[in-house]
Structure formats: C-alpha cells, structure tokens
C-alpha cells in the first residue's frame, strides 16, 4: 500500500492571550500522519498535547490563538488540501470537517454528553448534519453503531439519557458518535484516563477494532506511555509545547534517545523483567511554569547531560538519527 499523507502539521505555534501578552503554549510542533496509521502523542499534563489536539479542529477557547504554522489536511477521494489554520473557527468550512472528516473523543466521558438529550439524539444529530438521510434511517444507523461499540440492548439505549450510562458505556457511545460519519481522522484526547483499568482495556480494544474495520487514522493522546505503546504505530513525545522525540513505537521503546524519553520510560513499572529489577526512577525536578520557560532546550534544568554553553543557548532542532526517528537534543549531532 502506498503511503498517503493525511495530516501534516508544520511549525504549529499556539499562544495564550493573557493580560494582552501572548504566552506560548505550543512552541512549534511538526508531525505527519499517514492514512490508516495511529500516532501517539505523549507528554505530561500541561505540555500542550490537548491544546494541539483541539487546534486541529479549531476548538480552542477564545484566549488561545494559533499564532503561526500550518495544519494541512488532505481530503482524499478527489478532495483538496485544506489548511485548517486558515479557516474561520466558527465558519461553515470547519463545520464540514468537524464530525464529518475529523472527529474527536474527549477525556471525560461523564461530561462530554449533555444530560438534557438522549444518547441517541446526540449521535443522530451529527449523522443528520453530515449526510442526506431521513430521520428514520439516521435512527437505524445510530442503533447499528451503538450495537457495534458493544452497548447492550442498543434499541432501548438509544432512548437513554447519559446519566443512565456508566462511564465506560458513555465512552463507548462517544466512540459511536465519533465514527458515525466514517471520518478519516479520529482524535482521541486521553480517552481512557477517566476510566478504571478493566474498562480502559475494553475501550482500547474497541478503538483498535474500529480502526481495523474502518481504516481510520487516529491521533491518540495520553500521558501514559504504556497505553500509547499498545495503540500507536508512531509516537511523538512532547515536553513544554515542543515535540522532543518522534519515531516508530518499537524504536522509541527499544532505543529511546532524548534524555526525557529515557527518563519517562524508566518511570514505567515493568513486569517480568527480573534481572533489571530496580526502583522506579522519578524525573528530577518538575515542569517549569509557563512564565519561566528555560532558555534554550526547555528540559535543560532537569537533564543529567546538561552541557553548559550549549543547552542553554537555543532550542535544538529535530534531527533524523535513524529512519523516521527524530530527536531534538544536542547529544546527537
């Protein structure tokens, strides 16, 4: 199968409009996503991963502005390339993409449905917006979708309200809503974070099944490398609004290069690896606040390999150190 680029993000910069000043949140993010692939976006809380995700659909809050960069989306099957950053955030063009070509799953299944409408209504609404079918057909399609995502008694669940569903069921319903219009890209922003572990595994399985069935590309956002490792073909690690390492999942796990990635992997407990039995290693220090971003490499104040005069000067460029494996660190070149 030939590679088809679906999404290309170039030098994306997002700032927070705070008291008339612009505070950078996302500091120049670049990545590509091929059709049918899963990209894992990993980082600590507040590193800019959710903001990046929301910006792909122009769902950012009023105070957050895209100040630079491009988000190019290839509409396949005779479509054209759209630069999402150029669209009106409340306009008609972006609305066609939202829910139709690109859809999103959110972190809190508890609060991502309105309690005032039935689950069925809220899924059907999206279907009716993006296709020219009758209400009756849309209802049948919704029930079919609910069935597909593993909700028992889909016909009755159609008429249920969100507060009658458990967290896991709501996230299933959310997935049904997200795949309802066969999108080419699904953005999942920490979809399993709020669920307990058994449910988490079920939801991950479900997403994988859906991905295989529909060939949807996924951007999977999480702070949990373990979860992302199960899902993603490629992983991008973010730290303070920058991608600092990016590469195929296996490569990142086997051969991490950036000191932050290495530390991150050391902080995950692993079973079975008895010879390497060891204490979990926390990362020294904590993420600096938005207002005291370090000069140069943003990780320099927590890094064991800090090289004075180099790491404090400017942020290192992402360099390809092996095929498709990019690192932004002065230790490598």
């Amino acid at each position: 199968m030939e590679k088809k680029i679906l999404l290309q993000v170039k030098n994306l910069q997002i700032s927070w409009l705070f008291d008339k000043a612009l505070i950078p949140i996302v500091y120049g993010v670049d990545f590509n996503l091929e059709s049918g692939k899963v990209l894992g976006l990993v980082g600590e809380s507040a590193c800019g991963k959710s903001v990046t995700a929301l910006s792909l659909l122009r769902l950012l809050a009023k105070e957050l502005k895209i100040v630079n960069g491009e988000i190019l989306f290839w509409e396949h099957n005779g479509g054209e390339t759209i630069d999402i950053t150029k669209l009106e955030s409340r306009g008609k063009d972006i609305r066609k993409i939202r829910g139709g070509l690109v859809s999103m799953i959110f972190q809190e299944p508890m609060s991502s449905f309105s309690p005032l409408y039935t689950i069925g209504y809220q899924i059907m609404e999206v279907i009716l917006l993006h296709s020219e079918i009758s209400k009756k057909e849309a209802q049948e399609r919704t029930i079919e979708l609910l069935n597909k995502v593993g909700i028992a008694d889909a016909r009755n669940s159609f008429k249920s309200y969100p507060f009658e569903f458990s967290g896991g069921m709501r996230q299933r319903a959310m997935i049904a809503k997200a795949i309802s219009c066969n999108p080419s890209l699904l953005i999942a922003d920490e979809p399993t974070t709020a669920l307990d572990v058994t449910i988490q595994a079920q939801i991950l399985n479900l997403m994988r099944d859906m991905q295989h069935e529909f060939g949807t590309s996924i951007i999977f956002i999480s702070h949990d490398l373990g979860v992302v490792g199960q899902m993603a073909d490629e992983i991008a690690i973010m730290y303070m609004g920058k991608i600092i390492e990016r590469g195929p999942t296996k490569e990142i796990f086997k051969n991490p290069n950036h000191p932050y990635t290495i530390k991150l992997l050391d902080a995950i407990p692993r079973l079975g690896n008895l010879e390497a039995r060891r204490r979990l290693e926390p990362i020294r220090g904590s993420v600096p606040g938005l207002f005291n971003r370090p000069h140069g490499c943003t990780f320099n104040d927590r890094c064991d390999y800090f090289m004075s005069g180099i790491c404090g000067a400017s942020f290192p460029e992402l360099k390809e150190i092996s095929e498709n494996h990019f690192v932004a660190c002065y230790l490598y070149g």
Binding site: R98, F106, S114
Partner: peptide, 24 residues
Amino acid sequence: MYVTSARSGGIPEFNLLMRYPVRM
C-alpha cells in the same frame, strides 16, 4: 466539555448555543 464535544460534531453555532448551553 459537552459544549466543545457537541461543537466537535459540526453543529452550527446558533443551534449549538440554544440546544446545549442555553437550555442548560
């Protein structure tokens, strides 16, 4: 969150406003 979530489905702004946050 439910407002952003509904917006991510592509609902036109005015309908979205009336159906979701205003009604609440």
